[in-house]
């Protein structure tokens, strides 16, 4: 089916690109939800831009956490609980707003809070969070009678901005250096999150990515790969594969 780009100087300056013929242009002027399946772009709709136009890849070293113990003169050793939490700056973006983030760790979509190390009752888990200046790694650990060795994790992070408002009065413009449409919502100065079925950087999903049973935990990342399953897990969760995306 044909691809049609329609730009209208009237009717609010709508610009839209759809899968269909020019005769269907009125059908997409004010799209219904089912119409979204045939639309590639519409100036009334919202998109995800990648304001820094790149994927950040960061390796972060996490130090060894040594357990607390005390040995008496009679040789008796007692252990005490030690809680350690740290925050590491992975990326400084200075955007002035809190962006949407898509993090992966060691090649899979990072489920927030996933345990990355265990030794006896000792464990360390991680999550990624954002504010208006930076992206951070948060780690939380507890040790009793076994230490947690130092470890290095590699993170890949998409920083996204929700493009929801139009600006200016140019419905569509093409110059030798720039292209804009939909009052700046589609702009060659941005990069956007796009579907990638061949070599995606990330997968996005609308489904659950974990299950608990028997006290245990199983995580199947949105790329469909089981990335964590505790030996105590007794369920039958197999996960689903989401949609590959890249910028």
């Amino acid at each position: 089916m044909a691809k049609t780009l329609h730009a209208d100087g009237n009717n609010g300056g709508h610009v839209y690109i759809y899968n269909g013929n020019a005769s269907e242009v009125d059908d997409y002027e004010t799209p219904s939800r089912p119409d979204l399946s045939n639309l590639y772009f519409h100036s009334d709709l919202n998109y995800l831009a990648c304001p820094l136009a790149s994927v950040y890849e960061v390796s972060q070293s996490l130090p060894q956490i040594t357990y607390n113990s005390n040995t008496s003169k009679f040789g008796n050793t007692t252990y005490t609980i030690k809680n350690v939490h740290n925050d590491y700056t992975l990326v400084t973006h200075n955007l002035g707003y809190t962006p949407i983030i898509l993090p992966t760790m060691d090649g899979y979509e990072l489920p927030a809070g996933v345990p990355i190390q265990t030794a006896g009752v000792s464990t360390r888990g991680v999550s990624v969070y954002a504010d208006s200046t930076s992206i951070y790694l948060h780690t939380e650990a507890v040790t009793l009678s076994q230490s947690l060795p130092a470890v290095t994790k590699t993170f890949k992070i998409y920083i996204l901005n929700h493009i929801s408002s139009a600006s200016g009065n140019i419905a569509i413009s093409a110059t030798p250096t720039t292209f804009t449409a939909g009052f700046g919502k589609l702009s060659s100065s941005n990069k956007y999150l796009r579907r990638d079925n061949t070599t995606p950087d990330f997968y996005v999903t609308k489904e659950k990515t974990a299950d608990v049973s028997g006290g245990g935990l199983k995580i199947v990342a949105p790329n469909g790969v089981s990335v964590y399953e505790s030996s105590s897990y007794t369920g039958s969760y197999s996960g689903t594969t989401g949609t590959g995306v890249s910028v």
Binding site: E109, S127, D131, K208, A210
Partner: peptide, 10 residues
């Protein structure tokens, strides 16, 4: 803080 919580969160 704003944590990325796509899918499931532990």
């Amino acid at each position: 803080a704003s944590t990325a919580a796509n899918g499931s969160t532990v």
